[in-house]
Simulated scan of single mutants.
Amino acid sequence: MNSGKPIPVHNLSYQDFQLTTLENGCAENFNDIHRHNFYEILWFLKTQRYSSLEVDFEKYDIVDNQICILSPGQVFNMKLKGEKGYVFAISKEIFQEVCDVEMVLINGVKPFHLPYKVKSTCESLVALMEKEYHDECRMNLLTSYLKAFCIVITGELMSQESISGDKQRVQDLTKLIEEHYLLEKETSFYAEKLNISSHHLNDIVRLGRGTTVKKMIAQRLVLEARRELSFGTCTVKEIAFKLGFNDASYFSRFFKKHMGKSPESFKSEK
């Protein structure tokens, strides 16, 4: 079987952390559909009238002083039109050290706004990062500044209320699904990982998200299928196997159940 061409993956070519500006050259070329194997924080200081970006089939209009956090694996595209701001390309290892990964996975896609008082703090931290990055580039100091920056911006992203036990379990479940959905599609696997019964886990998810664990897994599989069908060149059969389906016809029925059309029809429309 000939392997189809996958969605391009942009890698960090050097260093575990790159800091640049939108106007003076980016850590990557934005002007194509691609994925990252790293985390990326975009801070839009100045935008144009119709500035926007697309992440996983969703188009977001962006305005001045917004931030977007991109996670590895997300399909991303943006046409630069003179926006000004910062780009932080961060390896998985460093990001796990400086930021709350689980919270970002749940809340981090949609661009969010920074209040003026927070913007001022962030500008000071970025100024320190820029100076160190272009001078001695000591990673221990850079990661300290970056951690402070992430603490400030994620404070605006998440609720200031303390996370309840059930909400924490939903966050943990989301992370587990992201890690295991290709191989593990049964609720019992995730319930065991979280040390609770399948029935209890479904109750938590139903109350917190209005859905079930099986549906969350299915939604993640459908999202990945849509990515591959829209932007990759693999056949439907190849995509089915990549997503852990042993039977391509079963994958087609699964996809049609959730999208209302066959994978072939969906792909032909793109």
Rank of each mutant, 00 (worst) to 15 (best):
P6F: 03
P6K: 07
P8Q: 09
P8Y: 11
V9A: 09
H10A: 09
N11W: 03
S13T: 14
Y14C: 00
Q15C: 05
D16P: 10
D16C: 06
F17L: 14
T20K: 10
L22V: 01
L22S: 05
L22E: 08
L22Y: 04
E23G: 02
N24P: 05
A27L: 05
E28P: 00
N29V: 12
F30P: 12
I33Y: 11
H34T: 14
R35V: 12
F38R: 11
F38A: 14
F38Y: 15
E40K: 11
E40G: 05
W43E: 03
K46N: 13
Q48V: 12
Q48C: 06
Y50A: 15
S52D: 13
D56Q: 04
K59F: 02
Y60F: 15
N65T: 02
Q66W: 03
C68R: 09
L70E: 14
G73Y: 01
K79C: 03
K79D: 10
L80N: 04
K81F: 07
E83F: 09
E83D: 12
G85R: 04
F88C: 04
S91I: 04
F95R: 02
Q96T: 15
E97W: 03
V98S: 00
C99Q: 13
V101C: 02
M103N: 09
V104S: 03
I106R: 11
G108F: 00
G108A: 07
H113K: 12
H113A: 10
K117V: 07
K117T: 11
S124A: 09
S124D: 09
E132G: 06
H134N: 07
E136R: 05
C137Y: 10
R138D: 14
N140E: 13
L141I: 13
S144N: 09
L146D: 06
L146T: 00
L146V: 00
K147S: 06
C150T: 14
C150K: 01
I151M: 07
G155P: 01
E156F: 00
Q160C: 08
Q160H: 14
E161C: 02
S164D: 07
S164Y: 06
V170C: 12
V170W: 00
V170Q: 08
Q171A: 15
L173W: 01
I177E: 13
I177A: 08
Y181W: 13
L182T: 04
K185P: 06
K185N: 15
E186P: 05
L194H: 08
I196C: 13
I196Q: 05
I196T: 12
L201V: 08
I204S: 11
G208L: 11
G208W: 02
K214V: 15
K215Q: 12
M216T: 12
Q219W: 03
R220S: 10
R220H: 09
L221D: 12
V222C: 03
E224Q: 13
E224P: 00
E224A: 15
R226K: 15
R227A: 11
E228P: 02
F231V: 07
G232W: 02
V236C: 08
L243T: 00
G244H: 02
F245Y: 07
N246C: 08
D247S: 14
S249T: 14
Y250M: 05
F255H: 05
K256H: 04
H258V: 01
H258C: 06
G260P: 05
K261H: 01
E269Q: 09
K270M: 03
K270I: 07
